[in-house]
Amino acid sequence: MQLTPDETTVFTLWGLGINETVVNTWIVMALLTGASILVTRKLRPDVPPNRWRTTLEVIVTGIQRQIEEISPQSSRHVLYFSGTLFLFIALSNLLLVVPGFTPPTSSLSTTAALALAVLIAVPLFGITRQGIAGYLKTYIQPSVIMLPFNIISEFSRGISLAIRLYGNVMSGAVIAGILLGIAPFFFPVVMDVLGLLTGLIQAYIFAILATVYISSATAIVKKPENKEEDR
């Protein structure tokens, strides 16, 4: 049983093997970008939105609302990052129902890449917001003793993100494959439906956790109010 699409090389480009994960990722990217271009190519403020544009507006504003609930001061860059995470993971997981399509998120490499992206993005957002010193100061909060624990916590976040997503998606695909062998007519359908739900939930969880991490990194630490009095 093949557990990851990384092992399947679809074609070779300049001596580099392009595996199924990358190809399927490109497919997902093409779908997302193509749909966006199709819907927004003739976007004018004086033309009433059609149903496709309304759908995209609902999705984008829904993501934005979720992000604002977590971090009211968040910038649009957070929306670009977290929204892309959600859309990519959600569409990848939804494409699970397409026969022969292996979601790129069922590859540990993909989930690790996304987790690494979050791991890199969090300090970048934090530094952009607070500056390098301000961000690094968060590692010694509330005291210097907490520095190793904060570093471990930072990395464990990425690892948990990657493993959680990979495990859920891959396990769904594996369970569906096993059940397909046992009861080929009924259980796979149920499991696919469950997989869709799980995939959407995982996309939501991944994007929300990323947003929470970014939000915590960009939150400015307030000084204690009684500090003046102590002096």
Binding site: T25, M29, T33, S36, L79, T84, A113
Partner: peptide
């Protein structure tokens, strides 16, 4: 290698969606 490729893909996707969607 796939991880790096996926990171690059993800960054490209972020840019594309920012340009054509958000």
């Amino acid at each position: 290698v796939t991880v790096l490729a996926q990171i690059a893909n993800f960054l490209v996707l972020v840019w594309l969606l920012k340009r054509f969607l958000y």
